[in-house]
Design a protein around this nucleic acid. Structure first.
Lengths: 338, 338
DNA sequence: TAGATTATACGAAACGTTTCGGATTGTCAA
DNA sequence: TTGACAATCCGAAACGTTTCGTATAATCTA
């Protein structure tokens, strides 16, 4: 490893001068700067960021904190797309990202503050924590620049990035209503996630705005799992034959509903319209193909990082960014009865 | 941020003693150790890893170097699963992973050595670099502990983790032969990837071992893209009606072949058997469902990290790990003619 | 020509650790 | 009583940076 000291020894200047030359200070002679730069180039010098961060407090590193990244989560490319977005912007900005995977239990061993100060992280992006997770509370209360994905909370050092879930869910519901559906069921995920709540609220508002009544009995819970959604909807569809449309809080659950419909010999979309959420790759390959609400997780990651760096540099005017979803209509939606 | 100095001030001991107490040295009195530990606990002290690494040269950090992690790569959950595997093991071992995304062009700005020494990385896992990428060469020649995913090269400080692609491809080919197929085509990916070569070799050997002749004309190129595979196989199947089976170097390309077959009104598997590679989620949802070779990327990541840490700690006896793939038979394979 | 100003360079301290080599007690065998 | 030894503690240097304050020499101003 070649250090400032090496460069100093070789060029004959002091460590101070070498440092200032490399950092572009103007109290160093053009000639000596050139000599120093040449030597640095030749020896492939790069500053040791750890040492740098020790004195400047700027580690050029942010954390991506995600809940429980284990075997099963590999299926979830929402997280991965967010990560790709972060990676792209972070690199552009000369930063680096470290991946922090945590679980509810691990949060007892180490506080959020500790995680951050261990590695001098300048800021953190949080995705997929449960509402009641201590880290989330710490992050919001603390003074570490933080950006939350899909959790709409903001303050001096906390911002968030999300999609217009509210509008897009309402839009989907109203679309179904416009097609003539009167009994629109809702397949919700588990209650740990903020998004479940938001989508459920929006579903109800969508119904109201379409002049339909909200019926609590038309809500199922599938925990964001295909199998659970399948079982829940199987029973549900049997006992609620008046239902002609299903809005699902995730595509995965929509697959479960689709499977149940097939099982019950219901024709999709003739007997039952289905709309999912996420636009996962699979939705284009099922038969019928699935209508869904498409998010842009890559964008969420990218813009989220942008926001985070603004908060870090104190140059941000706003504390939140909203990305537009799109309602993607495929074969699984139609007028009731065909 | 609470430092050793703070603890020293509060407990009345020296920084040295505090440090030694926390690190479990036995030349500190049980009582004083307890006092110090209590204080550390109370103030939520955690060592600053950057400062630590400056003196110990051990940063508790490894890098995951992946080629060009951009928008499109989000679809590729091979990489993501590997990443999840790395994350799991790395956390267990008290390390942290930083994500390094590079492109062929970026590799000109900064050398591999620089990337490593910038952040005192203890080791690096490399996935998806092109054969001719400079970083790959540097990594192999250099003295930084490195683990390559799916690139079988090893030396003093370099190891690799891969699956038994060779055997599993041969197995698939021989399985097709046993079913009675005599003209088995091969859809290859682009030539930048080591795996393309390996799979192609294994395809040929599989044919030979099954007593079939290798015919170079039965090889198509789909560049690991569905669309390209679709177009390539469309022409190919038209002009080679004797072909009754297609082995594809990836599931994505198998989808393309499947689409082409449907387009040509070929019945799969009656007129054409198809085997893919990767076992992506989609293969369970196509119709017919796709036979494929299943890799275990999570395992690759996890065991790869294990190997890397062994190399770092100089405690490893072997320099490579082979994970068993499995041949997964679904509906897309049958005897020729049904 | 004296004093002020500018250009250029550097010493030393600091960041938060670890670790080497002592220093200071107290205990015990001879 | 003395010397040896163990137990316990600490000072100072080091890791690779940045930065504050200062030093020196050259140049300018009046």
């Amino acid at each position: 490893m070649v250090t400032l000291k090496d460069l100093a020894r070789i060029t004959g200047y002091s460590v101070t001068t070498v440092s200032r030359a490399l950092n572009g200070y103007d109290d160093v002679n053009k000639e000596t700067r050139d000599i120093i730069l040449a030597a640095a180039e030749k020896l492939e010098y790069t500053p040791n960021i750890n040492a740098q961060s020790l004195v400047t407090k700027r580690s050029k590193t942010i954390g991506f904190l995600v809940s429980d990244l284990k075997r099963e989560s590999a299926k979830d490319n929402f997280t991965f797309e967010v990560l790709c977005g972060i990676s792209e912007f972070v690199t552009e900005a000369g930063y680096e990202m470290i991946l922090l995977s945590t679980s509810s239990s691990k949060q007892k061993n180490k506080t959020f503050r500790q995680i951050v100060s261990e590695r001098n992280l300048e800021g953190i992006i949080i995705q997929g924590l449960k509402k009641e997770d201590p880290y989330l509370q710490e992050a919001i209360k603390g003074s570490v620049p933080t950006v939350l994905v899909d959790i709409p909370i903001e303050n001096e050092t906390t911002g968030y990035v999300t999609s217009n879930q509210h509008d897009s869910v309402k839009k989907a519901i109203k679309y179904l209503a416009r097609l003539g559906h009167r009994n629109i069921a809702y397949m919700n995920g588990h209650k740990h996630a903020y998004v479940s709540e938001i989508r459920y609220q929006s579903y109800k508002e969508g119904l109201s705005e379409a002049g339909l009544e909200v019926d609590e009995n038309l809500v199922c819970y599938g925990d964001y799992e295909e199998e659970k959604a399948y079982r829940a909807s199987l029973d549900f569809l049997l006992s609620n034959p008046e239902v002609t449309a299903f809005f699902c809080a995730s595509d995965i659950m929509a697959l479960g509903v689709l499977k149940a419909a097939k099982e019950l010999k219901l024709d999709v979309p003739k007997d039952l319209s289905i709309i999912g959420f996420d636009n996962i790759l699979l939705t284009q390959y099922t038969s019928p193909t699935l209508s869904t609400i498409g998010q842009k997780p890559f964008e969420l990651g990218k813009r989220g990082t942008e926001l985070l760096l603004e908060i870090i540099q104190n140059s941000s005017t706003q504390r939140h960014i909203i990305i537009q979803n799109e309602l993607i209509l495929r074969e699984s939606t139609a007028q009731p009865g065909g």
